[in-house]
Design a protein around this nucleic acid. Structure first.
Lengths: 152, 152
DNA sequence: CCGTATCCATTCCGATACTG
DNA sequence: CAGTATCGGAATGGATACGG
């Protein structure tokens, strides 16, 4: 992977044309992805998120505001009718592959030998196999066989 | 996706048995993933990283130290023989799928219509298709068709 | 139950100056 | 080139108290 070129614009980062930097600018803090994870997990109310993450209430309010502003989550009418709950938008749901790859990396490298952890299973109870980036023909790709091309 | 159970241990987060939280504990800050990205991109020297990321020197030194301590990168002898350069370990290289999914999400959701950005291409110049989590039989999975199971 | 408001501590970060 | 040392400001975080 090598970069051909880079444009210039004003973000906290260099290289604003890099989608990785842009993505991290949205969810690259300590809590956002955990909030998204819990939303995928069924968390819907303020208290749901607060209890699952253990985050301070003021910070949680701030993150929910920001994630809402960025349209990763939205407040929608609950089925019950009167309460408003948080739900992932399509943009938020599209983070699923990110959560999964992060989880799989964590499973493999962030636990000691023999230390127990949760695993992701599909609707038939089978463990979800590791995700590998692949070319259109299915050939597995690594950072050595890919590169970054700047579009004109 | 729903969590069956959770153990207790001492991290800044709740739910230390969640690999997502563990992974974020290692690379969930503002710079680490960008450093990994640049390493995949060919960055090898202190100055390489400093210039590509624009990060302050003291912070960069700190991050390189931490990433080295966590064994995502290592200092190795340069082919030239005398200088030591930073290189990704296998653990670090295994973050490739994370970088790719993050990139693909960013490409799709973190740019305005018509705004230009770089793309990831394989060794034949073809754009790398979006990664989708899938079951062993190839069936695509979403957060609605997966769940988190805690191992005993 | 859903937040907001405040206070305080800690961390993070950038800029700069300096050393081997 | 590869860091280290220091400083000050900003962001982040936890705890708690309060109001709709």
């Amino acid at each position: 992977m090598a970069v051909d070129d880079v444009a210039g614009r004003d973000l906290p980062w260099t290289d604003p044309s890099c989608p990785v930097a842009r993505a991290l600018d949205v969810i690259g803090d300590r809590w956002s992805l955990l909030i998204v994870r819990d939303a995928m997990d069924g968390a819907r109310s303020f208290t749901d998120f607060q209890q699952r993450t253990g985050i301070a209430r003021n910070i949680l309010a701030d993150r929910l505001r920001k994630l809402t502003a960025q349209r990763l989550i939205a407040q929608v009418e609950a089925p019950s009718g009167k309460r408003r709950v948080y739900a992932l938008t399509e943009t938020g749901k599209d983070l699923f592959p990110v959560i999964v790859t992060l989880r799989q990396w964590g499973e493999r490298h962030a636990f000691e030998q023999g230390e127990t952890h949760s695993v992701l299973v599909d609707d038939q109870g089978a463990v979800v196999p590791p995700i590998v980036p692949a070319a259109a023909d299915g050939r597995p790709l690594t950072s050595d066989t890919t590169s970054v091309r700047r579009l004109v």
